[in-house]
């Protein structure tokens, strides 16, 4: 059992805490549920020490942990280019960007802990593949242009997903998302600027950008999750206001935002069916390979094993640092 964040130390005045669970009658539970629903209906936030249905707590833990893991694993594909960046300027930018992603992971583990889980435990669950992370980070980054395309498309898709989450009904998650969204805009812009620079370069550089776009476009669209008809939890998540738009709505928004950016950059998005539909007022686009999505999510993507293996090694090889810090603190406590 772990301490919960946001001051879980109990104050002695009544209140609805879980250790009274044994005495709680069914009637009281209904009252609490009504109060919870009422809070959400009025667009108020649920805070850590509030009563909440166990399913809500479990959903939030799963969602926040997966999100945190994605930020942490997401450092790897780009991190490989830090030592190979073509200039000191690009190296400094990439280093700052990757450090931000580490920060995002930590904000989110912090939010998850307010729900009564321990972050060391979440790391274990990631390493043991008992919890997932975004499928996008299981693709390789063989070229430097991948750094730019990740910033533009992957961080761009993440922004689309994350902006509505700033209004998530769970307070600590919504607040973490506000911090994260503020930082994401730098991520997207540095990527796009990198690509603009390459597009002004040689034919080989332009070809490298186009190749990266070809490889990342479809996986980026998959970041929004399965189509609405195959997303059975969407309705409940929308009712709880932990999700504000459906997967397909957000995907459409991303496509509409990205098409003019691709034009301005001078690259072609690899979809022959992509065209403006004046009746819908949106771009139509071709079918997504959901079998690939499922394969990658199951663990059979190009880099799944490598990503987890590296995370495990970092954790194990860092053990002596954690032990040394604990020993140092213990020594200072005993005068």
């Amino acid at each position: 059992m772990t301490e919960r964040s946001e001051g879980i130390n109990k104050h002695s005045t009544s209140g609805h805490s879980s250790d009274e669970g044994g005495l709680m009658t069914a009637v009281a539970e209904t009252d609490l549920a009504r109060h919870f629903e009422h809070t959400i209906e009025r667009d108020q936030r649920i805070e850590p020490r509030d009563w909440m249905p166990e399913a809500y707590r479990a959903t939030m833990i799963r969602q926040i942990a997966q999100h945190a893991h994605s930020e942490i694993i997401g450092m790897q594909p780009e991190g490989d280019w830090i030592t190979r960046a073509p200039s000191l300027r690009r190296k400094a930018i990439l280093l700052a960007k990757v450090q931000d992603e580490a920060g995002h992971g930590l904000y989110l583990y912090s939010a998850a802990e307010t729900l009564g889980v321990d972050r060391a435990d979440l790391t274990t669950r990631l390493i043991e593949r008992r919890q997932k992370y975004s499928s996008i980070f299981n693709y390789p980054t063989p070229a430097y242009a991948d750094v730019g395309v990740i910033g533009w498309l992957v961080d761009g898709a993440a922004i689309c997903n994350q902006v509505p989450l700033c209004r998530s009904s769970y307070g600590p998650y919504a607040r973490a998302m506000i911090r994260i969204c503020k930082e994401e805009s730098f991520h997207q812009r540095q990527g796009y600027e990198l690509l603009m620079t390459m597009m002004r370069g040689t034919d080989a550089q332009r070809a490298m950008v186009q190749d990266a776009v070809d490889r990342w476009w479809w996986p980026s669209l998959m970041m929004f999750g399965p189509p609405d008809q195959d997303s059975p939890n969407t309705a409940r998540s929308m009712a709880w206001k932990v999700k504000r738009h459906t997967n397909d709505e957000l995907r459409q928004r991303f496509v509409d935002m990205t098409v003019p950016q691709a034009e301005a950059l001078g690259v072609t998005l690899p979809d022959p069916d992509l065209r403006w539909n004046p009746e819908r007022g949106h771009h139509d686009f071709g079918p997504i390979d959901w079998d690939e999505f499922k394969r990658v999510l199951r663990g059979d993507g190009p880099c799944n094993a490598e990503r987890i293996d590296r995370r495990r090694r970092a954790h194990e090889e860092g053990a002596w640092v954690r032990e040394a810090a604990a020993a140092h603190a213990a020594k200072r406590r005993t005068p």
């Binding site: 130390n9 104050h11 005045t13 209140g15 609805h16 020490r49 509030d50 009563w51 931000d100």
Partner: peptide, 23 residues
């Protein structure tokens, strides 16, 4: 990381005594 502050307090969570929002 971006000039968000001029001063920081850190306090062990176990040293905080808090009321609940519902109280």
């Amino acid at each position: 990381r971006r000039n968000e502050g001029v001063s920081i307090w850190v306090v062990k969570a176990s040293h905080i005594t808090a009321s609940s929002p519902d109280e």
